[in-house]
């Protein structure tokens, strides 16, 4: 038992120390796309089979949602220094919450990509995102948002 406790405490300790050192070394900042074109390029690469039709971006340029000609959708979001893309289907979005800063917090049904924060500065941007996300929510979720 002592061995396991030692293993756990040193493991967590080293993980925290490395994270702190990496952060202090200046490697803590997440990536951002410079503009919509950069986000389009990444998303188009992730979904080559159909042309991208429309795209919306978060205010901090860290999340983008694109729709494609074949009716599919892809969400682009940061994983630290790297990008992660996620296909959105009709029922992908499990829950949508408005954050205290007026952005959106999405929970997905995808076990390997559970949630994402979308930074938004204006009410119109929030409405645009909600409208764009509606096809990917369950009907009850859509009603809840409309009622709110």
């Amino acid at each position: 038992m002592d061995d396991l406790t030692f293993l756990l405490t040193t493991g967590v300790g080293v993980a925290a120390a490395v994270a702190l050192y990496v952060y202090l070394a200046g490697f803590g900042k997440s990536v951002q796309f410079a503009n919509a074109q950069e986000a389009k390029t990444i998303l188009q690469k992730a979904h080559k089979s159909a042309a991208l039709t429309d795209i919306i971006l978060s205010s901090d340029n860290r999340v983008a949602l694109a729709h494609f000609q074949d009716g599919s959708a892809q969400l682009l979001h940061t994983m630290g220094h790297k990008w992660s893309t996620q296909a959105l289907n009709t029922n992908s979005v499990k829950r949508v919450k408005t954050t205290s800063k007026g952005g959106l917090h999405l929970n997905f049904r995808d076990y390997a990509a559970p949630s994402v924060n979308i930074s938004l500065e204006t009410e119109s941007a929030r409405k645009t995102w909600l409208k764009a996300l509606t096809p990917h929510m369950h009907a009850t979720q859509v009603h809840a948002i409309q009622d709110a």
Binding site: L8, V14, A15, L20, A25, G80, H81
Partner: peptide, 21 residues
């Protein structure tokens, strides 16, 4: 290096040894 990525990897290594035990 990225803080969360590196700390996750180290924690996973710790977990691996733990589950190995």
């Amino acid at each position: 290096y990225e803080p969360r990525d590196a700390s996750t990897s180290i924690l996973m290594g710790t977990g691996s040894v733990l589950f190995g035990f």
